[in-house]
Structures are given as C-alpha cells and as structure tokens.
C-alpha cells in the first residue's frame, strides 16, 4: 500500500504542477456555475429557490462534463510512462502492478473530488436562500462520485492500452459517450433488448441518486464497472510485462 500512496502522491503533485489541470479545473468551475445558475434562474425573482436542489446540476455534470473530464485527467497517466520509457523503471521496481494502477486511480479521484468540492459553494448558496433537502444532496454526491470513479477507471484502461495520450483520450471519450447515450439508445429498441441496453448505460443508474434514493443495484453497477476496468488495466500492464 505504501507504493500505492507514493505513486498517487507523485501523480497528484503532477496535476498541481501542470497547466492542463488548472485549465480543466477552470472549465469545470465555469460549466458547473453555468449549470447551477440555469437550474435556479429564478434566483433573482423570488425569495426562495423554486426547487432547492442540485439535481439538474449533478445530472449535467455526469452527462456534459465527466465524459471529457475523465479522459483528459487520465490520458497521460500510463500512456506517457510507456512513451517516455519510465515504465521500465517503474515495473522493474518491486511494486505490484495493481499498486501502480490503484495509485494512479486514487490520484485522479483526488483531483476529481477536489473539483467537486468547489461545487459545495452552490450548496451553501442553496442553504442561504432556500431550504434544500439534505438526503438527496448526500445521495446525489455519492452518485456523482461513483459515476466519476467509473469514468476515470475507463480512462485509465484506455491510457494503459497505448503510448499515445491522444489515442487514449479519444478511446475513453468514445466509450464514455457510448455509455452515456445508451439510455437514449434503449428507447429505440423494444423488449428485453431495451432493458439490457438501458441497464448497461451509465446514466440509467444515476437518476435514483439525485432523487435521493440509494439503490443497491445502482451502487453495484458503478462499483463493478470500476472494478472490472481497473482489473483490465492491471491485466493490460501485466501483458505489457509479459509480452
């Protein structure tokens, strides 16, 4: 585990010394601010918010932000190591492959959680002007964290498959866009197919969370997606070692 933290810490520092991370954080703040203001645009016309919740904002983060945020944050993590050859010293140190993968995953999660923490400002505003329900807020945040974790694990897998960051980003963007719009696709087919396609989609499992419901099956969906992606990333590193 010490190796995991060392690798995570190195990557976190990497984020804070890279201009890309600041630009990403800035765009994140601008977009979420815009989503928030739109969802409560009656803020100026009444004493109370029409609906004191972050439901729409969180939904929009999941659909419009995470599909590109996760690829951008993860693309260089393993691709760059392969391109620069630094993976040779990393993998010949006595670290386990899963420690490498988990460390990188944790680093991106920390960055994502930091960005997400900025949205707590909106919660404060809600509490100041309205009377938000605490339940849906908590479950909503749990949902977006799980959603983000799944998206990041997909990005990490893509980054392990290539030494080209751009390719990694495009691959994970493609997968995430697909998983985001599977729910829409499910409406185009009928019967069992519709259910199956719908259940595979990432958005399908998100609505309950923002409505204040923590359904085990939804938690299981995101957690298993994450686990499978991280597992595949470890395998991908192993085959790189044993090819």
């Amino acid at each position: 585990m010490r190796n995991t933290w060392a690798i995570a810490w190195k990557e976190i520092r990497g984020y804070f010394t890279s201009p890309v991370a600041y630009v990403v954080a800035l765009i994140f703040v601008a977009l979420t601010g815009y989503f928030f203001v739109r969802s409560v645009d009656s803020i100026l016309s009444g004493p109370n918010f029409p609906e004191a919740s972050l439901r729409d904002t969180l939904r929009q983060i999941s659909v419009f932000i995470l599909p590109w945020l996760a690829p951008v944050l993860t693309m260089r993590l393993l691709a760059e190591e392969q391109k620069m050859g630094t993976i040779e010293l990393l993998l010949t140190s006595p670290v386990r492959d899963w420690e490498v993968v988990l460390g990188k995953f944790i680093a991106t999660m920390v960055f994502f959680l930091g960005a997400l923490a900025l949205t707590l400002w909106y919660v404060l505003m809600l509490a100041w002007r309205g009377n938000p329900e605490i339940g849906p807020l908590l479950s909503g945040y749990l949902g977006i964290i799980l959603y983000g974790g799944a998206a990041i694990s997909i990005g990490l897998l893509a980054s392990s498959l290539t030494s080209n960051q751009i390719v990694a980003a495009v691959v994970s963007l493609g997968i995430l866009v697909l998983l985001t719009f599977l729910e829409v696709g499910a409406d185009q087919v009928t019967g069992v197919a519709s259910t199956v396609v719908g259940q595979l989609g990432m958005t399908t499992h998100f609505d309950d969370f923002v409505r204040g419901v923590i359904d085990t099956s939804n938690v299981v969906y995101y957690v298993s997606l994450m686990a499978v992606m991280l597992f595949l990333t470890v395998r991908s590193l192993e085959t790189r070692r044993w090819r």
Binding site: G14, T17, S18, M84, G85, E88, L89, T92
Partner: peptide, 13 residues
C-alpha cells in the same frame, strides 16, 4: 536489483 536502463528514462517534471 538496481537498474540503469539504456535510455535512462526519468520523470522530467
């Protein structure tokens, strides 16, 4: 093992 690879790959940042 201590290893110095031929290409001396280091983290430049």
């Amino acid at each position: 093992i201590g290893y110095l690879p031929e290409t001396v790959p280091l983290y430049t940042d």
